[in-house]
């Protein structure tokens, strides 16, 4: 068991998402930065989809009731175990009774806002509709279908002794994407792109869009040049995905994120490609993001880059584990 000692707010149990229940009205949920969750699991020898804790607000601390191997990936949140500093993106072990504390992320080396705590074997909450992710609107999945609170005890299995110590270079450093000095994500135009004025289309690709404080796991509300359509748009309700950039009447876009409802009716000017959702999921409130237009093939190549990075990480970990065994 690990006990939550200090949960400021909104930390949730997440895996890579709940797929296949859209026909019940159930959205995907899952880690805002799936690369970091997968990497933490790879370091621990878990399945990439094992559940971890997504931590967006700091400080956050847990007490280990069981000896557990763990990782902290995602944001560079200074962490300590009973006062001893820990490296991020590195394999660690906690003995029963030790307390782990994470504090506000630093952006000296890479800019990110969410940390992931993964444990060997994964957070052992029940699988609901094919996933361990928290479904906040439906109040199921994760830990009792809600964000974590102080005093919650999460089920984990005890880990065997750790005889290796190694880490990974974060994808934020290995796969950077910057446009004119501003962190960027790639976007494919969506159904209503052609219904926007040329000024609006131009603004979409050139504006540094500010992520306002009204941004969370449901969606990011952006501030920038208002995007106006050439004529009023009335749409029928249809399925949408995380990454869709909707434009309500005011002209300030909203990007739907992992907890967004899986259908909607606002006009869509574009969609952040699936391969770049992890970058967006880490973008801090108050920071800016650029949209870079891409083609279908470029978007699939970007997904292949992520797959390649994860494959490389698995190989490194497998090699290291073999060396430790041989030694």
């Amino acid at each position: 068991m690990i006990e939550v000692v200090n949960a400021a707010s909104l930390a949730t149990v997440q895996d890579l998402g709940r797929y296949g229940a859209l026909n019940l009205g159930v959205g995907v949920s899952g880690a805002m930065d799936p690369m970091s969750l997968a990497a933490g699991n790879i370091l621990l020898g878990n399945e990439e989809n094992a559940a971890g804790i997504e931590i967006p607000v700091f400080p956050f601390s847990v007490k280990f009731r069981t000896a557990v191997n763990f990782t902290i990936t995602g944001a560079d949140a200074p962490a300590n175990l009973d006062g001893f500093a820990l490296l991020p993106w590195w394999l660690h072990r906690a003995e029963a009774g030790q307390t782990l504390t994470l504090t506000l992320p630093q952006s000296r080396r890479w800019r990110a806002s969410r940390a992931y705590l993964c444990v060997q074997g994964g957070i052992d909450v029940p699988m609901v509709l094919g996933s361990r992710s928290t479904q906040l609107r439906g109040a199921f999945g994760g830990f009792e279908g809600r964000p974590l609170r102080t005093g919650d005890c999460l089920p984990v299995k005890p880990s065997l002794a750790l005889n290796a110590a190694f880490g990974l270079v974060p994808p934020a450093l290995a796969l950077p994407l910057i446009c004119d000095g501003v962190p960027a994500v790639r976007v494919l135009p969506a159904a209503e792109y052609q219904d926007y004025t040329s000024e609006a289309q131009n603004a979409l690709w050139t504006c540094a869009w500010k992520i306002t404080p009204q941004s969370d796991r449901y969606g990011y509300r952006l501030a920038g040049d208002p995007l106006q359509p050439t004529h009023p748009l009335e749409l029928r309700s249809h399925g949408i995905v995380p990454g869709v950039i909707q434009v309500p009447h005011g002209g300030q876009p909203i990007i739907q994120m992992r907890d967004a409802q899986p259908s909607g009716g606002y006009p869509k000017i574009g969609t952040v490609i699936e391969a770049d959702l992890w970058r967006l999921g880490q973008a801090p409130i108050g920071s800016s993001v650029r949209f870079v237009r891409c083609t279908w093939d470029e978007a699939l190549d970007a997904a292949a880059d992520n797959t390649q990075w994860l494959y490389h990480a698995r190989r490194l970990v497998a090699l290291q584990t073999m060396r430790e065994r041989a030694a």
Binding site: L188, P189, A190, A191, R236, H238, G239, I240, V241, P242, G243, V244, K268, T271, V272, I273, E274, A275, W296, A299, L300, A303
Partner: peptide, 12 residues
């Protein structure tokens, strides 16, 4: 037909 990124295709 329109794209929803690489995640999905929308048929209207």
């Amino acid at each position: 037909l329109s794209l929803l990124g690489t995640s999905a295709l929308l048929f209207e």
